[in-house]
Design a protein around this nucleic acid. Structure first.
Lengths: 219, 219
DNA sequence: TTGATATTGACTAAACTGGTCAATGCTTGG
DNA sequence: CCAAGCATTGACCAGTTTAGTCAATATCAA
């Protein structure tokens, strides 16, 4: 089966080098790098990344050769994680919009607590200046033309919504609300340095919000 | 009457220098600086600011003397704009939560279209590293102990909400939804370089969202 | 012990930094 | 028209930071 997202040769080479690494160390490197590149390609420094990841400069360049290669690896890794989470693990046959969204959000929150900056990293890819990697990013983003919200929400059963409100508008409101929630949680984690996975808390809060939507927006 | 926010002497001095400036030029400088400091104090460079503002390095330092002074001026300007918008122009006697929120959001959107990065700038003040200006920022932020959401929403009439949902939770959902909307609009503006004030569009979209909340969350 | 591999961090040349200042442009009042 | 006083410029500077290197060391397997 064709993978959802095709990684570049550069990424595959880096992956083989990282394979023999301790899993926890690998995550530390990726997480630190995501966070650093949140500032934009040019403002991110390899010095900061190695400092935060707790490895030496030599190691980083041993794995990745250049800053640009590291960045490409991160782009591939982030895109692959997001897409495979949404489109292979998520149940696209679930026709209840709220159930599907709840699943999506919780999946996203799980990713966010492993890599707090992954969403900001992807946003920055989209709105920021990717320096010498611009060409690569544009090409990859072009492929995922997506309306990814459209794909993710395609085929949901809108007839569950009340008839006296605009269904598309209601969906938009719901998506905005969860975006606001995820954003504020990511901010909180960065501000406090919290790196835990509060799965139960997220589950509870998302369920509460969903409960309100279900009660108020559904027939 | 005591002003809501007290500006520092440094800021007042800079303001007198900027006073004789063309208003459009002044806004360009502030806007470029907000956007640049979004990366955090240390990562922001005066070179980038002057480039984006379209002025010379000499001018910037003529107005502000040092990078730190410029930053303090921006902190004061952003805080003053936000606070005076919310607490003097907003009607704090309006007890209908949705009406009050709608007013707040539209005020915020107006600010955002003048200074697309102002919200991110303030967020970064809160969660980021403010370098040599840390002391100043902490002192000023300390004064606005805020729960600013609490102040802004204090005294609203919760009895308008349906009884079968948690009122506080419903308010949170509403605030998250508008945060998500404002954030996505700021992203869109940065990505497309759009600098217009689409007041009518915002008014329409916010009204649509509010209409849904009113119909679904109120009795 | 030996040899192969993983990791280190001091080091470098190039680029970038906040800040300066002599030179230039612009306006205003005589 | 001039002259004086202002705003504005950008080349320049010394100090710092940058991506990337590499000889030396640590780790591990046989």
């Amino acid at each position: 089966m064709k993978p959802i997202y095709e990684k570049s040769a550069i990424t595959l080479e880096i992956e083989t080098k990282l394979l023999q690494l301790d899993g926890e160390k690998k995550q530390r490197i990726i997480s630190a790098a995501f966070d650093e590149f949140t500032k934009g390609y040019k403002n991110a420094t390899t010095d900061n990344i190695v400092k935060r990841a707790g490895i030496s400069k030599g190691s980083l360049f041993h794995y990745c050769k250049t800053k640009k290669n590291l960045f490409i690896y991160l782009v591939d890794t982030a895109m692959d994680m997001i897409l495979s989470e949404f489109f292979t693990k998520g149940d696209l046959k679930e026709s209840d919009a709220l159930k599907r969204i709840q699943e999506m959000i919780l999946t996203e929150m799980k990713l966010v607590s492993k890599f707090p900056s992954i969403i900001k990293f992807l946003t920055e890819l989209y709105i920021g200046d990717n320096g010498e990697a611009t060409e690569y990013v544009d090409e990859k983003m072009g492929l995922i033309t997506v309306d990814y919200m459209g794909m993710a929400l395609g085929g949901v059963d809108l007839s569950l919504f009340r008839d006296d409100i605009d269904h598309a508008e209601a969906l938009k409101v719901i998506m905005f609300a969860f975006r606001g929630y995820a954003e504020s949680e990511a901010d909180r984690m960065k501000a406090t340095g919290d790196k835990e996975l509060h799965y139960d808390k997220y589950n509870e809060e998302v369920s509460k919000m969903n409960e309100i939507f279900r009660r108020c927006f559904y027939k």
